[in-house]
Write a protein that binds this DNA or RNA. Structure first.
Length: 475
RNA sequence: GGUGGGAUGGCCGAGCGGUUAGGUCGCGGACUGCAAAUCCGCUUACAGCGGUUCAACUCCGCUUCCCACCUCCA
C-alpha cells in the first residue's frame, strides 16, 4: 500500500516515494534552546516521529536531520542576562530537550546539528548568494537577501507580494533594507550581543535565523531532498526563506514535499511562550502524568487539525491506555513474555488481519492516527471477546499472532509497549493479606473477603478477582 | 485587507454524497457472592439559512462564530 501525505507546496495529498536509495531524507526544524520546550512544541516533534515511523512501517529508510538553534536573539539575551557563555547556557536546554524526547518515546533523528557548529557552512552559503547578486551588504555590515531577485518567492506560502499591505510589524524592522520583505542572512555585531560573534567577510556578526536550516539541511541531505517539516507557523517566513536561500544558491529544487502540523491550543488559543499560556513537559510530569499518556494525547488528533489541550484529554488517554494494557496483558499472560520477533510466526485471525489492514490504510492516508487508533480498538474488542469466550477458543499460535499485530501497530504508535507501569513487587504484608483472603474465599467467607479487600486497599493496592484468582495492582 | 484551517453526540475526536468511526463519560442487560474487568444494547450528533441531487454531516452559496499566518514562534 502506498503512503500518501499532504504537501503544503502543492496543497494536495500525494504519494511519498524516495528520490533515491529507498531512503526518505527528512529535515525537521528543531528547537531554539533558550528554554524548556512546551508540549505545543512537542506536538510538532511527535508528529515528525509518527511520520518517520510510518515511513519505516512501509519498509523505507529514514535519514532525519533535526537542527538545534543555539544562537539567536533569545539565546543571546538569555546567556548574557545570566552572565554565562552562550554554549553553557544552551547546553542545559539541549540536554533537557533530549531527555524530554525520551520521555515521549520519540525516535532519535540520525543527526542533530547545532547552528554554532556550522558557521563556516553558513558563511559560505551567504557568500554564494552575494556572488549571485541576490544578497547585498548594508552599511552596518549586515547581509540581506533581496526577495525581489528570487522569482519564486512566495510559492510555498502562496502569497502574492504585489498585493500585500505593509503592516506596522513590517515597518518596525526596516532600517537598512532595500525592501521590507528582505531578510537577514548575516547580522552585524551589536553591543547587546556581548561576547557572541564570529568573524566573517562582512565583519563580526552572527547568522540570520533562516540560513542555518538551508546550510545544514543541504550539507547532510543534499541540495535536493525529500521532505521538510515543521509547525505551521514556520511555513512563512521561515520555510519560504529557506527555499529562497537554497534555490537561489543552487539553482535546483530544494525540497520535494513540505509538511506542517497545526498548533496545540489551550483555551482556544495557540500555546506559545510569547503568550505565556504553556505547559512544559516537565510541568505535566510533575502533575503525575506519564510521557506515554501525554504522547497519546498529542498523537491522537490529526496533525493538520488544531488540538485543544485539556486535562480531561489526559484522563481519557489514561483510561484508554489501561484498556489496551489489560487486553495485551491478558493475551501475553497466556503465552508468557514475548518480544515482537516471537510473534511473527503466529496465526492471525481474520478480524485481527482486518484491524491491521484498516490500521495500515489509516496511517498511509496522510498519517490518520485517530483512525489508526479506531482500528486498534477494534482489535482490542475482538480480542477481549475471544478471550472471554467459554470454552477458550484462541490457540497459542493465535495468541502470538494477535500480539504480533499489536507489536506491528506499535511500531507506529509507540504507545502500547512503551512506558507501561512496571510490575512492582507486592510487599510482604500485602501478600499476607492476599493469602488470607484467598483462604477466606475458598471457604466462601465473603464478609472476611471483603474486609481483607478493604485492608488491601488501605495499604494502597487494588485487588480484583477473576477465574484465574486474585490480581493486585497499585492504586 | 490578504491567505489558510475550523464549528460533529456530556467531553475528546475521525469521516464520507447513501452503509457502526473510535475513545471517554452516563444508562440498561449478561457474567460475578459483591466489586472490578469483559461482552451486548442504549443515549443515534454533525453551527444557521438557502441551493444542487433520487439521496448532503459530506458538494455549492450566503450568514454567524472561532483559530492561525501575513517577517520572534513547533
Amino acid at each position: 500500500m502506498e503512503m500518501k501525505v499532504y504537501n503544503s507546496l502543492t496543497r494536495q495529498v500525494e504519494p511519498l516515494t524516495p528520490l533515491a536509495d529507498d531512503t526518505i531524507r527528512l529535515y525537521t526544524c528543531g528547537p531554539t534552546v533558550y528554554n524548556f520546550a512546551h508540549i505545543g512544541n512537542f506536538r510538532a516533534y511527535t508528529f515528525e516521529d509518527i511520520l518517520r515511523r510510518v515511513v519505516q512501517f512501509n519498509g523505507m529508510k529514514v535519514k532525519q536531520v533535526m537542527n538545534l538553534t543555539d544562537v539567536d536573539d533569545k539565546t543571546i539575551r538569555g546567556a548574557n542576562a545570566a552572565g554565562v557563555a552562550l554554549t553553557d547556557y544552551t547546553k542545559t536546554y539541549k540536554d533537557a530537550f533530549f531527555a524530554d524526547l525520551r520521555k515521549l518515546n520519540i525516535q532519535p533523528a540520525e543527526i542533530y546539528p547545532a547552528a554554532t557548529d556550522h558557521i563556516p557552512e553558513m558563511i559560505a552559503l551567504v557568500e554564494k548568494l552575494v556572488e549571485k547578486g541576490v544578497a547585498y551588504k548594508s552599511d552596518d555590515g549586515s547581509v540581506y537577501f533581496a526577495v525581489t531577485k528570487f522569482p519564486g518567492y512566495g510559492k510555498l506560502a502562496h502569497i502574492d507580494f504585489d498585493h500585500q499591505r505593509t503592516g506596522a510589524r513590517c515597518a518596525a524592522d526596516e532600517y537598512d533594507k532595500e525592501n521590507v520583505g528582505d531578510f537577514a542572512l548575516w547580522k552585524a555585531w551589536e553591543e547587546s550581543d556581548g561576547p557572541v560573534g564570529w568573524d566573517s567577510p562582512w565583519g563580526r556578526g552572527r547568522p540570520g535565523w533562516h540560513i542555518e536550516c538551508s546550510a545544514m539541511s543541504m550539507k547532510y541531505l543534499g541540495e535536493t531532498f525529500d521532505l521538510h517539516t515543521g509547525g505551521i507557523d514556520n511555513l512563512f517566513p521561515h520555510h519560504e526563506n529557506e527555499i529562497a536561500q537554497a534555490e537561489a544558491a543552487t539553482g535546483k529544487p530544494f525540497v520535494n514535499t513540505w509538511m506542517h502540523c497545526a498548533h496545540l491550543r489551550v483555551n482556544g488559543e495557540k500555546m506559545s511562550k510569547s503568550l505565556g499560556n504553556f505547559f512544559t513537559l516537565r510541568d505535566l510530569l510533575e502533575k503525575g502524568w506519564s510521557g506515554r499518556e501525554i504522547r497519546y494525547v498529542l498523537i491522537n488528533a490529526h496533525y493538520r487539525q488544531g488540538l485543544n489541550f485539556a486535562f480531561s484529554a489526559l484522563e481519557d488517554a489514561r483510561k484508554s491506555l489501561e484498556r489496551i494494557d489489560r487486553c495485551v496483558d491478558a493475551l501475553s499472560g497466556k503465552v508468557g513474555q514475548l518480544d515482537g520477533r516471537d510473534t511473527e510466526k503466529g496465526e492471525v485471525p481474520e478480524w485481527a488481519a482486518k484491524a491491521l489492514e484498516d490500521f495500515t490504510a489509516a496511517v498511509n492516508d496522510d498519517l490518520n492516527i485517530p483512525r489508526a487508533f479506531a482500528a486498534l480498538f477494534e482489535l482490542v474488542r475482538h480480542a477481549n471477546a475471544a478471550l472471554a469466550s467459554q470454552p477458550p477458543n484462541l490457540s497459542p499460535s493465535q495468541l502470538r499472532g494477535i500480539l504480533g499485530v499489536f507489536f506491528r501497530m506499535d511500531e507506529v504508535l509507540g504507545v502500547i509497549f512503551f512506558g507501561k507501569a512496571e510490575k512492582t513487587d507486592v510487599p510482604a504484608e500485602v501478600q499476607a493479606l492476599l493469602d488470607q483472603r484467598a483462604e477466606a474465599r475458598k471457604a466462601k467467607n465473603w464478609a472476611e473477603s471483603d474486609r481483607l479487600r478493604d485492608a488491601i486497599a488501605a495499604a494502597g493496592w487494588a485487588v480484583k478477582d477473576s477465574k484465574d484468582g486474585q490480581a493486585v495492582t497499585r492504586r
